[in-house]
Computed example of a mutant assay.
Amino acid sequence: MKVIYLIITCIFLQACSTVASVNRPAHYYQENTSNDSGNGLVESAIFGNDDKKIIELLNYRVKLPEKNRIAILKLSTDNYWRFYSNDFTQLNDSLVDSFITKLRSSERVYDASFLPAMLVSEKRSVPVLREAAARYQADLLLAYRSSCQSYNKYKFIDPNESKSYCSVESVLLDVRSGIVVKSVVSVESFTSKEVAGDINFSETIKKAELEAIAKALGNVATEVVNYMDGVPRI
C-alpha cells in the first residue's frame, strides 16, 4: 500500500461562503392554518391555476417528530477517482463518515443515512422522491450535488499550482408535506500546489477537491443541525 504522506497535497484555503435559507417567522402563518394535509401538499409537479394549493403550500407550517431519520441522496455523479487508489477510497469514506456523524449530532436526529439506490428511479421529481423516502421511513430527505472548477490561468504563473473552488448545493425536504424546509449552498475555494512525492498534478488537484468538498458538506450539515434543533415538534 502506498504511504499516504508521500502524496500529501498542500492546500491553502483562501475563501469560503455558506448561504442558507432563513427560517420563516412564526407570525407569517395564518391562525387557521392546519397541518392536516391528507396525502401531502405536493401531489404533482405542476399546479396550474390551483391557487388554493399554492396558498396551502405558502402557509403550511412544518412540524417534525421528537426524533427523525434523514435520508441522504447524492444527485451528482462524480466519483473523485474513488477506485484510483486506496488513498482516495479512505478520503471518500472519511468524508461520508464525517458528514453523517455531524448530522446525527442533533438531538432531533436518530439516524442519517443514504437512501438505498434501488428505491430511486431515474425520474427524480418531488413526488417520486417523497415516495422513495417514505418507503425508507425517513422523515426528511437531504438531497445534494457537488461540483468543482479549476482556474487554468494560474498555471501560467506557476505550472505546479492551481486555484479551484468546490460547491455543494443542497435542499432539505419534509417528506410528509413535500415542502423544502431548508436550502444551503456552500462554496470552498483553495489553491493546491504539487510537492515532492506527488504522483502527478491531477492527483494533487483531486485530493484538494476532496478536502474542499468535505468542508462544504460540513457547512451544510451544520446548517441542517441548527434547523433541526429549532423546528417545532408534532
Rank of each mutant, 00 (worst) to 15 (best):
S105R: 07
V171K: 11
L210S: 12
G38V: 06
Y136H: 13
K102D: 03
V62A: 13
L142T: 00
Y136R: 15
K67P: 03
V42P: 04
A138L: 05
D111W: 00
S17F: 01
F114P: 01
T222Q: 15
Q30C: 04
G38M: 07
G38L: 14
P159C: 00
F12Q: 13
V195S: 10
C16L: 15
I46S: 09
Q30S: 04
K153W: 04
D51F: 09
V187N: 12
S21L: 12
D78I: 15
N92W: 01
S150N: 08
I205N: 10
K206R: 13
A216G: 11
D87H: 03
H27T: 02
S17A: 15
S121G: 08
L119S: 05
E131H: 00
E31C: 06
E43K: 14
Y80M: 14
F99Y: 12
E43I: 14
E194F: 05
L141D: 01
S170E: 02
N160D: 03
T222N: 12
E131Q: 10
D139L: 15
S183D: 02
G218M: 13
L57S: 01
L91C: 01
L142N: 00
A26C: 03
G40A: 09
I7E: 10
P159M: 04
V171H: 08
V128M: 07
I46L: 14
V3L: 10
